[in-house]
Design a protein around this nucleic acid. Structure first.
Lengths: 205, 205
DNA sequence: GCAAGTATACTCACCAGTGAATATACATCA
DNA sequence: TGATGTATATTCACTGGTGAGTATACTTGC
């Protein structure tokens, strides 16, 4: 009911996405965003009640697209479970080699707003990361791995570690190292805990 | 020769440390720092040529202390190599439960300054992380593990992943999960690649 | 005419950095 | 020994600019 407005709100969000991601939260003003969106700051305040509100909307807008991408990389990868997990890391390496890549927007926002734990954007970020972890857990449960939660958590740690170290060193090779570690951990879990009957293949693209 | 000045410079650096770490880089002004140090902003500019310069000095001042701490945690831990590596993670979990803990200052600064890859502080951060990785590599080489560089990199990824995820979720348990993953990887490397004669123990407290 | 949406023009606070002056310490020379 | 010079260290008061957020008025479709 009553689309809030077709055009301006989307343009604001698009501009916010680009600027917040590429420059950071506090480095970007609403004047910058309004200018990039081709409208006035007052219009931004018509659609979003504050900058914090817009920051939250920025992360909300990235939540599903990012998760969808991870799932796609996983499900379209060839090979067994370790390869599918590794595929996520290898695709991140590919992304990270683009010059405009600046790490994970959720992680960077969390780092920048670390002094405001109650900030709405922090909650969105935590929920996003939790969804990813839960999805991985379910994938591991689906093939009857032992301790799927622990394994999923290890993968998550490697993934966020990859985001961070790539950003620090500007070296996408860290993602491949993380992918290797991840597939080793998955393989280890499969050797002791999995269906144990079937060799490895279960899901295929 | 000619100590630059005993008191003021140190007070500035101490104030910068606390404020930059707890609030973030762009969230803190030189007015804030000057006030906390009990001096005038102009005095800050006498000792540091710009805010960027002070940010760099902030990270430089954390470099050795942090590395020393990691080495201490490692060397003072009981048990074999996997336990010593895990000890670093467990100590981070302890630190992270302090209310003032706000993640890794190097990582958070890198995240905030991701749009300025040439910033001097970014170089300091990258060098710091590289030193840690190199040290770990040397520890693994010292006990003749195979592929010590790859293993060290995996540990680094887990460590920085722990810093990031703990900050996002405000849950220090992630450090323990990372420690478990790390010791599993070390153990795996020891089983296939180490001295291979001796069972496992080589370094002991 | 009215309500949603947009714009102009503004407030007030803050920020990085500076100009000019001052205080302190230690030289050097008469 | 005292006068003068010079580098170090510090302050007060300021500038030009930007930031978040707002008061008010215009526009346009229903």
């Amino acid at each position: 009911m009553s689309r809030p407005t077709p055009n301006a709100r989307d343009r604001i969000l698009t501009a916010a996405n680009k600027l917040f991601y590429s420059e950071g939260i506090r480095a970007v003003s609403l004047d910058n965003i309004a200018e990039k969106a081709g409208i006035t700051k007052k219009t931004v305040y018509y659609h979003f009640k504050s900058k914090d509100d817009l920051v939250e909307a920025y992360l909300v807008s990235r939540d599903q697209p990012n998760l969808t991408l991870y799932r796609k990389w996983f499900s379209e990868a060839d090979g067994g479970l370790p390869d599918k997990v590794a595929a996520i890391f290898f695709q991140i390496a590919v992304s990270a080699r683009h010059p405009k890549w600046k790490g994970c927007g959720f992680l960077r926002t969390a780092a920048e707003l670390a002094n405001m734990p109650g900030h709405p954007a922090m909650k969105v970020g935590a929920a996003h990361k939790k969804k990813f972890e839960t999805w991985l857990t379910e994938e591991f449960q689906a093939v009857d791995l032992e301790q799927p939660e622990a394994l999923a958590r290890h993968i998550v740690l490697l993934l966020d570690g990859a985001f961070s170290t790539i950003l620090v060193h500007r070296d996408a090779d860290y993602a491949e190292a993380a992918g290797n570690a991840a597939s080793a951990l998955v393989l280890g879990a499969m050797q002791k805990g999995p269906v144990a009957g079937k060799p490895s293949v279960k899901s295929m693209g």
